[in-house]
Computed example of a mutant assay.
Amino acid sequence: MKNLKTIAIALLVTISSVTVNAQSKNVDVAKSTINWVGKKVTGKHEGTINLKEGLLVFKKNKLTGGNFIVDMTSLSTTDLKPGEGKEKLEGHLKSDDFFGTDKFATSKLVFKTIKANGKNSYTVTGDLTIKSITNPITFIITVKGNSATTNLKIDRTKYDVKYGSGSFFDNLGDKAISDNFDLNVALQF
């Protein structure tokens, strides 16, 4: 019984010290950017999407955690101008063919494991949720001062975004759209 008490006290002290030493830093969503690029046989489209909220967790100035919520309704294209197909493409990307933003207004990323690669660089494995479907994703993030950057390559078909995918539909020809899209993320906190 005495040993059990000692173990419980030691566990409590350990949990307390981890909590006390960890520092959460909220991401400044107004100063942070997410740029996307989607490719197709005949070219590509690019645009932006906004963070709704996010934070990074540090312990002794080392990255130890993070989680983010993305506002999928903010999805916009930057390579087209109004009247040149911008509204049509944005509407299609927000439709059920792609991200279904009426039903799935947010996406989420939660860091699960983090491994330091050297000064300012970390390999992160996290759970990415798009359209209520969660899959693991691994990427490298660089943290310097009050900023962090990363590039992610996401296979949209893992999140039931299959429109125009040559992996699921035959005879698409030059209408085929790459299964992968890229996100270039710059965070300020």
Rank of each mutant, 00 (worst) to 15 (best):
M72R: 00
S132R: 02
I9N: 02
T64E: 12
N50T: 11
L128R: 03
D170W: 12
V185K: 03
K108M: 00
K94V: 00
T19L: 14
T77H: 08
T42N: 11
F58T: 04
K60A: 15
K108S: 05
V124H: 04
R156P: 00
I137P: 05
K52T: 07
G85I: 11
G83C: 13
S178A: 13
S32D: 10
I69M: 12
E53P: 05
L75Y: 01
K144P: 00
L109D: 01
F189C: 09
F181I: 11
S32N: 11
D79L: 14
L128E: 04
V110P: 01
I154A: 09
Q23R: 09
V185W: 02
V161F: 09
K60E: 14
L109Y: 00
D179F: 09
K112P: 08
L11W: 01
G166E: 08
L51A: 05
V110S: 01
A116Q: 15
T48N: 15
V18H: 07
I69K: 13
K39P: 05
I130W: 00
I133P: 02
G91M: 03
N26F: 13
G100S: 12
F104Q: 03
K119T: 15
F111K: 02
E53D: 10
K175T: 03
G47D: 07
T125R: 09
I15K: 07
K144A: 13
D96I: 11
G126A: 06
T6E: 08
